[in-house]
Nucleic acid binder design. Sequence first.
DNA 1: TCATTATTTTAGAATGGTTCTAACCGATAT
DNA 2: ATATCGGTTAGAACCATTCTAAAATAATGA
Lengths: 143, 143
Amino acid sequence: MTVSRRRKETQSEHAVERLRAVGLRPTRQRAALVRVLGSEHRHVSAELLHKEAQKAGVPVSLATVYNTLHQFTEAGLLREVVVASGRTYFDTNTGDHQHFFCEDDGELIDIDGEVIEVAGVPTPPRGMKLDRVDVVVRVKRSV
Amino acid sequence: MTVSRRRKETQSEHAVERLRAVGLRPTRQRAALVRVLGSEHRHVSAELLHKEAQKAGVPVSLATVYNTLHQFTEAGLLREVVVASGRTYFDTNTGDHQHFFCEDDGELIDIDGEVIEVAGVPTPPRGMKLDRVDVVVRVKRSV
DNA sequence: TCATTATTTTAGAATGGTTCTAACCGATAT
DNA sequence: ATATCGGTTAGAACCATTCTAAAATAATGA
């Protein structure tokens, strides 16, 4: 057994534990996607994750990637970020933070939650409850 | 000549002036869409505006509605609001303000610009210039 | 005015991201 | 082990939006 083999198994077990912890069945595909998502904070589209999974030798269907991304979001493992029509990102950083969004290339950059201060958010209209306050700082390439 | 006929012409002239003012050729369709958009602040989708134009007896193609909405946005007559994937709204209120967004029914509600205070917006990354800071207060129907 | 040119509009096809369908497969519990 | 129920899949369907190329219309200038 090689070292890399051992590392892989360890990661898989982590993945399985994470899934159990949030009440999701630890299937082959879900565990694989947790591993492909990795531990670094990043912003992935469904298509990108699908490609990465393929490249990593995990044959997951695009439908499953979509299903899984939504399940992970529900479970609090991911956060959905909508900044442009037809461009949904899933953010592995679920902590308090906001984003820069570059209109030109569609890139997202995190802004730490302590940096931006939002004050004066009004109470939601009758029959509504507050879910989240999103701040998107839209930027453009300067010339 | 009836009163309503006179009112219509007056509105058309207003529309034509507004178009000229922003450097857009005052074509039949564009003037009609300005009229259909009206003077009240509201949030319209391309599809809705298309339907309204049809109903108002102005046969504008959907492609033209899309073209026009984008031109109006460029010209500063409208503001584009993206809050959910595949759900683009155009806001006739181009002044400083933010939005409530109801995740359940997709409704947008304006929040006056003076109400919400955003502090600490960091300077954009190298090579980027700030375009706009959007705040979306996401709400859900409470039970 | 009329011709010329540039822009706009149009129907319908194409695109692209996302969701749906219905058959198949696999994890869990008995 | 086996049944059950949830998960996965390929491919079709969907739907908002964009594209295309041809026809229509506005601006320009003689």
